[in-house]
Design a protein around this nucleic acid. Sequence first.
RNA 1: GCCCCCGUAGCUCAGUAGGAUAGAGCGCACCCCUCCUAAGGGUGAAGUCACACGUUCGAAUCGUGUCGGGGGCACCA
Length: 589
Amino acid sequence: MKAALKALLEQVVINLKKDGVLADDVNPKIVIEHTRDPSHGDFASNLAMMLAKAAGQKPRDLAEKIVAALPENNDIDKVDIAGPGFINFFMNANTLTSVIPAILDAGEVYGHSTIGNGKRVQVEFVSANPTGPLHVGHGRGAAYGAAVADLLAAAGFQVHREYYVNDAGRQMDILCASVWVRYLSLCGALPDLDYLPANGYKGDYVWDVAAHLHRNNGDKFQKQWSDISQELPADEPDGGDKEKFIDAVINMAKEQLGAEDYRFIFDTGLNYILDDIRDDLAHFGVVYEEWFSERSLTDNGLVKDAVERLQKTGHVDEREGALWFKSTDFGDEKDRVLVRANGQSTYFASDIAYHMNKLERGYDQVIDVWGADHHGYVPRVRAAMEAVGDDPSKLHVLLVQFAILYRGKEKMQMSTRSGEFVTLRQLRKEVGSDAARFFYVMRKCEQHLDFDLDLAKSKSNENPMYYIQYAHARVCSVLRQLDEKGFTHDQEAGFESLDKLSEPHEQALMTTLSKFAELVEKAALNHEPHQLAHYLRDLANDFHTYYNAHQFIVDDEVIRNARLCLIKATKQVLQNGLGLLGVSAPDEM
RNA sequence: GCCCCCGUAGCUCAGUAGGAUAGAGCGCACCCCUCCUAAGGGUGAAGUCACACGUUCGAAUCGUGUCGGGGGCACCA
């Protein structure tokens, strides 16, 4: 509808140019918006105010000329000029009610659009190191990334969801060493059964991996700890060089086990945890097209290629034995190391290779959903892309702020040690997947999120997710009642009598429904699922208000058919909207 | 020190590609079921949109600066 009005006004501008009211070189951006106040009609345009200066006329005088030049249109009831020069459009009743058949005919795909034009978008999100289970911070990235991806898909983009698996690097070696030490403990080969290097991974899941390893392989990987420990430097948990110690343990493990067995334990830990993450995310309604291995970048020589490609640009030099990318040439605050003096490439080098690879795969847009703590990382990745001549505008980095858990007023401690729940799995178990998905996307991503567990579990209208689901369940309940009372709903007949929907509550509900498709587009393009969350809350509110004011199952067949069309359309939009956020729409509660 | 985010009702937050009297939930004061789920609805009180200057016919929204709150700075990943 907006588009149609826009087209009309574009025609007006052409006509006014012909009449000499406007100069030929004036090309205004035509804006049509929904009015906030019904007395201002259904839509409004500020065109007259925008053009007043160029035309050398008072806004209201110009508005008169615009209205006079407006082509005939059957959908428009009345056009008013108001305030400083707004042009208000009052649409006729059919325009509003037409949304109902539009929704019911399209069904599950109502709200989908083609604005994305089939462009290929890659969305990379979560990508947590597979060194332990996902925690509640990752949960926000998961819910947010999944919602953005689903919104983009609904808006007509071709979406590729990807998880970057950091299956190489020191953190994974530390995990491997931790698993091995726990394993030795299970073999009874450690003097102190609870012994672990100060910098090792302490979570219980490490025991699980070790037990898994022991169950399937017996004592195969057992070595004499007394021999090993003699050659290790001192571990210094209290501020000493525990880094050095864990590195020594890693090297010792490699030496004692041999490359093959070391890799086996390494991969056992990796796969065990990755399976756990996959399972966790699947239960959270988050699925990927691809799990991209960091190790594959090195194995396929892509990291080497990336460094060489950068070197050819002349923005790399060697200092103190290391290879540096001169990212300061592109506005970064300092240069960054690509290859360390010890010959190992940095995580940054892998990441450059990964991003080059993404673009080589031909995506029109690459979206990275990162934790806010990575923000310092953005300029250097952009710099690398610029250096090699890739288009940095294709890269969108969405930084997700931290979520803080509250139980009522009480802020929860988020330490792994304390045993207070920190994993996504525990959160899902406590509040359910639906509430978790919804609460995570209620705020825009750059906003700190206070996640109130008590609220997420409460069954009242304080809890927006419950309130929205309840609206859906209520419609279902009405439809069940209809059946029990022996009525049927003739939808086609209802379509013929939509003009009976003249109550203010019905008008308000239809107006809200008519904004859905546009809202999905906007939420998708701006990467703002929270807009959808708020919209659904408003829609549910309109419905509950209507429900309280009017009966749907009435004796008058004509009205009954029309009203049931309206609430069925409401149900459909609630279901579609919740679906985009990964939240279920239950039939009863 | 440099960089990023935030500052709107007592509380938690919408609204920011500039538009008409700034919205919602909670909380507070009242009111509404012989009726499809009261897990609901309605009415009311409540604001110098942190502050200042600037751009504009018009600023919560854009720009600059100040003040407050949070986060980030590695040859870690």
